[in-house]
Write a protein that binds this DNA or RNA. Structure first.
Length: 854
RNA sequence: GCGGCUGUGGCGGAAUGGUAGACGCGACGGAUUCAAAAUCCGUUUCUGGUGACAGAGUGGGGGUUCAAGUCCCUUCAGCCGCACCA
């Protein structure tokens, strides 16, 4: 027997080199072929790949290789989301230039990715920090600006007074700067915004069309956009000394207007601000609200608190009825108009507030089946359906009719109108950072905001920057910001902010379609390749990245780049890679490599001390429950790592990385390797048997092709792997030595190698070559199942009595109902159970089940 | 608080309303070996029984159906998202 060892590293290097030599995975320029665009979310070049990347890219690679084998022109690109904060941190901490640091990281991660054997078209690779990339988004921005899709306004930022810099939200920990520990202040700065709210309705409505998106992502986007339909109502202030003469409120319940018992405004509402200037008590209360707002814990437990301004407003429909005006801590300036009318009977927050401040509670909606005299609101507001009461001539209307009546009445006297508002805010894209795409704007004392002319693009980042001083290096740079006004020629300043890095990732999938284009991408290329047929990545991008990309596609269409609404036709969100955690006696986290498994106990590999094995959690550096993909690939090979990634858990669910699981995957590959190398097989093309044991193996093979194809298309990779095991078992269990069985064995083994190729491509190519083939599997087509061979002729059917399984009978497939019934009733077991009673009814579901009802 | 997802052997997980537990991991028994690793064969949902077999079983309770892990109602637990959104 020929005992060849499975040498994964050697095999993997060999085939990776051959794929490169043959340029196997370049997308074809032939646009007459049906296309398939598979995309995995491109990585931030942190320096090393982690298991999450391995899972993500393995999933994408299976899809890409499968579609290629199915005859599609596949686009499967890879690149780098290369701007971002970690590069600046490295610069500050280690003195590395962000550009060099990023490019070094890209180089090492590219090497790591290549060792995984991913079928990428590397010819399309780019990094978003390259001016060749970001210059195009500068032009896009200018076009957005022309169309009013980009604008400038004042907005709040987190300001670290110690570092003299702006912090991102995630850099603020418990109200303090993460590095300095200084208490963060809020400051107003002029910033750039993209008008995503213009598309709020469209982005919401089009969620319906995203049929191949996970329901939960669609829901999250739905909630994020947060559409509320209601009315805007004006309340006239009473008295002459008012800072403002009307308060506008937004409500989704205009039908409860007669239940209004107070008006409440946010602490930063213009009325409150005006009052705070003259009234010390009001100012104190406002200051208190501002303080509370910063900590999240207090929001959860905060009681409803208010400040009675002593002012009042008039009810718009009840002349003379006065409503007291309060400043309330639960009213948000950012939502609606920053003011509400309180209807305590039908809103829990209003009720809590009314009880705290002794305000009247008037029920105006009567639940069905309740007597009005018995209906009292005590602890809980009633928000359910019912008929209006205490509401003048609206009494008796249901809620919907009441809303209509209210709007009509308010419109008639011009104090209100229909209003729809969204939770979605415009996208603030300014970042006070160096390592990002410069915003191509010039500020001139005379001409104001002047776009950089297209001919002057790109506005590139200066390389010679100084991170030793606090603040933004772009602002500190001696010369970069100084320029002349494109319109009048006078000395002027450049915008010193850069774009949010979500800007780059909002169109990179378009760039891949045409990565060398001088215009970002050509509309012809986009028209052929887009939308992305299958997008794969983590669910953490369910809202921001995916929503911004959907917006960008629409905005780019509006300014003439392309004609497309939705960028991603199919989306798959993968689960996290988890691992058990380990702690030593002192509670210090230990790496899995430091720990050895000793019977049921864990010990420290070096000290022998007992180790506490903890929860299985998402791999994270802080808990040290990480496994380095590079070491796995060196030890077992990329194919083993890929196979294990796919084997156990469905892709959208979290998976647990275990040593036993890796070994299981490795064992299976070795088994297949032996199967090919240790079996004396007849030559290619030996005719297949038509009966006997060989025929059974042929059938099993066709079943495997059929099921495996469906499983890959349905993202059931764990089942696809199970199909491969089943086929391998069938091959092993077929013992016959006759030529016909041997021919069947060759067919089955060849097919097994073809089927496993998208999952573990290197070993598949190697074995394909061992089997005598001259061509590469990378260029071979997917096997076709002969469906007529899939169904067995004799099938085992369960026989139930009153729905309980009692026996099985063998029947010819597609036999008549009568034959099935007769066979069932002839079964000795069934006869025994029937005890001479005649069955009441016999239900026969052909080829499935027989149920005898007694 | 609101919304969503998930609960199936020791474990990961399979099951178009139709024979629950495919496939794998682990465990146990056996073969091979001087021995071990590797490999091969077998057993493995639980309870009772040597056994044929019987009973129970998909978080709990109820319902629809000839038939429910699957559909409906209800309840519990875990996870995720949003969160004073008017």
């Amino acid at each position: 027997m020929n005992m060849v060892q499975y040498d994964a590293p050697a095999i993997e290097k060999k085939w990776q080199a051959r794929w490169v030599a043959a340029n196997s995975f370049a997308a074809s320029p032939d646009k007459t072929k049906p296309k398939y665009y598979v995309l995995e979310m491109f990585p931030y070049p942190s320096g090393r790949i982690h298991m999450g990347h391995v899972r993500n890219y393995t999933l994408g690679d299976v899809v890409a290789r499968y579609r290629r084998a199915k005859g599609f022109n596949v686009l499967h690109p890879m690149g780098w989301d290369a701007f971002g904060l970690p590069a600046e941190n490295a610069a500050i901490e280690r003195g590395a230039h962000p550009g060099n640091w990023t490019r070094d990281n890209i180089a090492s991660m590219r090497t790591q990715l290549k060792s995984m054997g991913l079928a990428y078209d590397w010819g399309r690779e780019f990094a978003t920090c390259d001016p060749n990339y970001y210059q195009h988004e500068q032009l896009m921005f200018l076009k957005f600006f022309e169309k009013g899709l980009a604008y400038r306004k004042e907005s709040w930022v987190n300001w670290d007074p110690a570092e003299n810099t702006v912090l991102a939200n995630e850099q603020v920990v418990d109200g303090r700067g993460w590095r300095s520990g200084a208490i963060v202040e809020r400051r107003r700065l002029s910033q750039w915004f993209l008008k995503i709210t213009k598309y709020a309705d469209e982005l919401l409505a089009a969620i319906e069309t995203l049929e191949r998106w996970p329901e939960r992502v669609r829901l999250m986007q739905h909630n994020w956009i947060g559409k509320s339909e209601g009315a805007r109502v004006k309340f006239r202030m009473l008295g002459d000394t008012m800072p403002i003469d009307t308060i506008e409120v937004f409500t989704t319940r205009p039908d409860t207007l007669f239940g209004a018992s107070f008006i409440a405004v946010a602490a930063n509402h213009p009325l409150a601000v005006a009052l705070g200037e003259t009234n010390q008590d009001a100012a104190d209360f406002i200051a208190e609200c501002a303080k509370l707002g910063t900590s999240e814990v207090t929001i959860e437990t905060a009681e409803k608190r208010g400040f009675d301004t002593g002012l009042s407003a008039e009810h718009p429909l009840l002349t003379g009825k006065k409503l007291p005006v309060h400043i309330a801590n639960f009213v948000l300036m950012e939502y609606g108009t920053g003011a509400i009318f309180g209807c305590p009977a039908h809103d829990q927050r209003d009720l809590d507030f009314a009880k705290a401040y002794n305000l009247p509670v008037t029920p105006v909606v009567l639940p069905p089946g309740v007597n009005q005299d018995d209906f009292k609101i005590t602890r809980e507001a009633y928000t359910g359906p019912g008929k209006l009461i205490n509401s003048g001539n609206w009494d008796g209307l249901d809620i919907e009719a009441g809303k209509q009546a209210a709007i009509t009445a308010l419109e008639e006297i011009k104090v209100g109108s229909v209003e729809t508002i969204f939770r979605l805010r415009d996208w603030g894209v300014s970042r006070q950072r160096y390592w990002g795409c410069p915003i191509p704007i010039i500020y001139c004392d005379d001409c104001g905001v002047v776009p950089v002319p297209a001919k002057d693009l790109p506005v590139t980042l200066p390389e010679d920057v100084d991170f030793s001083k606090p603040g933004n290096p772009l602002a500190n740079h001696p010369s970069w910001k100084h320029t002349s006004c494109p319109s009048c020629g006078k000395a002027a300043f450049r915008e010193q902010d850069t774009f949010d890095t979500f800007f780059e990732s909002s169109w990179y999938f378009l760039r891949y379609a045409d990565p060398k284009s001088a215009h970002g991408f050509s509309s012809e290329a986009a028209e052929y390749w887009l939308p992305v047929d299958q997008y794969i990545g983590g669910v953490e991008h369910a809202v921001l990245h995916l929503l911004y990309s959907r917006f960008f596609t629409r905005a780019l269409s509006e300014v003439g780049y392309l004609d497309l609404a939705e960028p991603f036709a199919g989306l798959m969100t993968q689960g996290m890679v988890c691992h058990q955690t380990y702690q030593d006696r002192d509670g210090k986290w230990l790496f899995p490599t430091e720990v050895i498994h000793d019977g049921d106990d864990w010990r420290h590999g070096k000290t022998g001390e007992a180790v506490r094995a903890g929860r299985i959690e998402k791999m994270s550096k802080s808990k040290r429950n990480v496994v380095d993909p590079e070491i796995i690939i060196e030890t077992y090979g990329a194919d083993t790592a890929r196979l294990f990634m796919l084997s156990d858990s469905p892709p959208e669910r979290d998976m647990e990385w275990t040593e036993a699981g890796v070994q299981g995957a490795s064992r299976f590959l070795k088994r297949i390797y032996r199967m090919v190398n240790d079996n004396a097989l007849p030559s290619i093309g030996t005719p297949q048997p038509t009966d006997g044991e060989g025929m059974e193996l042929v059938r099993a093979t066709h079943k495997a092709i059929y099921s495996m194809s469906l499983d890959i298309e349905g993202f059931r990779f764990n089942r696809a792997v199970a199909q491969l095991h089943t086929l391998a078992n069938s091959i092993s269990n077929t013992k016959g030595k006759s030529p016909s069985v041997a021919a069947a064995r060759r067919f089955a083994i060849e097919t097994l190698v073809q089927l496993i190729a998208p999952l573990t491509p290197h070993i598949a190519e190697e074995l394909w070559e061992t089997l005598g083939h001259q061509t590469m599997l990378a260029n071979s087509s997917w096997p076709t199942a002969n469906e007529s061979l899939i169904a067995d002729n004799i099938i085992e059917i369960g026989v139930q009595i009153n729905g309980k399984l009692r026996d099985t009978v063998s029947l010819a497939r597609d036999c008549t109902t009568q034959e099935a019934e007769d066979a069932a009733l002839a079964s000795p077991t069934i006869v025994r159970y029937l005890e001479n009673q005649a069955p009441k009814r016999v239900i026969v579901v052909p080829n499935r089940i027989i149920n005898v009802v007694v």
